[in-house]
Design a protein around this nucleic acid. Structure first.
Length: 298
DNA sequence: GACCAGGAGCCGC
DNA sequence: GCGGCTCATGGT
């Protein structure tokens, strides 16, 4: 339990950062945010430049929120045009969290072809079924399950988590890491493209998931994940889809990713995250939470 | 009740 | 290597 103060000129929007779709285990209860980080229940709340915490140490909170990074400098580095400028302006305190690679790997295998609320459900369900109970004054929490716990002998036992076709991918990936615990740390130490290739070798991990894992789990900020929203935003504001080419294809997504990295530079992942979080307004929807695309073409 | 979602694997050409 | 199809599921 304690309070830390944000340094002058170093903003952090706790609620936005925890809820924008990079982490899936945080729940808002009153003015507190509660979640499990590395088998510990954390409670956080923010009031202006004060962040109150219960559970972790101040050092852990600062690391998780990446408060050591100079956010205004990062924003300045990617602020190259009016579009990204508006995106930054609409979520100025957004920070990319430093999360556990294993949890992120599983989370973004779950994230294929579904909505963010469903990802949250799947992760909660996996934790409840296969994690360990963590005592907390505010009710039952469960740790995120280990690779060994998810490499259960028969994957049919995963079915109760309602992962759909993803259960065999989770099972296969968990079995591989359970059998080689040094694999993720090894991949993290590799150059970006080699780490990416390594991630692509896991079942259920394709180009988009690999980039999300690099960005959110490996803390590689030049990764530029391309999902349906980023594809639409980039097509509308940055590079028109080539005539005759299908707007949604792996080849086209690769073109977008390479453009994004080149254009935004070493902090391209941050730029991607601002664009993603501002997707509603960038795609011309009513400002706020709605993300309906209103039949807009990609 | 369609349509869509922070896609990926597989198969045929 | 590229295009098309299929894959469970639930939110909107």
């Amino acid at each position: 339990m304690g309070i830390l103060r944000l340094r002058e000129g170093q903003p952090c929007d706790l609620a936005l950062s925890l809820s924008c779709g990079q982490a899936f285990r945080w729940e808002q209860r009153g003015e507190w945010w509660e979640g499990v980080v590395e088998s510990e229940v954390w409670r956080l709340r923010q009031e202006g430049d004060r962040i109150e915490y219960a559970g972790p140490t101040a050092r852990r909170v600062r690391d998780y929120l990446a408060l050591d990074l100079d956010l205004p400098a990062i924003q300045a580095a990617v602020d190259r045009d009016p579009v990204i400028h508006a995106a930054i302006a609409s979520c100025p305190g957004l920070r990319i969290l430093r999360q556990d690679p294993w949890e992120i790997l599983v989370s973004f295998i779950c994230a294929t072809n579904t909505h963010i609320p469903r990802i949250r459900q799947m992760i909660a369900s996996l934790s409840r079924c296969f994690g360990e109970r963590v005592p907390s004054p505010s009710g039952a929490w469960y740790s995120f399950p280990s690779p060994v716990a998810l490499a259960v002998p028969c994957r049919e036992t995963l079915e109760e988590c309602r992962l759909g076709y993803r259960d065999r991918y989770i099972h296969g990936t968990a079995a591989r890491i359970a059998g080689d615990p040094g694999l993720l740390p090894h991949l993290m130490a590799l150059p970006l493209e080699e780490a990416r290739e390594g991630l692509l070798s896991f079942p259920g991990v394709g180009p988009k998931a690999a980039d999300c894992i690099l960005l959110f789990g490996f803390h590689r900020y030049e990764a530029f994940p391309v999902d349906v929203w980023i594809r639409r935003i980039m097509h509308r504001h940055y590079l028109a889809p080539p005539p005759g080419m299908k707007a949604a294809s792996e080849k086209e997504d690769r073109r977008i990713r390479e453009f994004g990295r080149e254009y935004f530079g070493e902090w391209a992942g941050y730029a991607q995250e601002y664009l993603f979080c501002a997707r509603g307004e960038l795609l011309g929807d009513a400002p706020g939470k709605g993300h309906r695309d209103g039949k807009s073409r990609e």
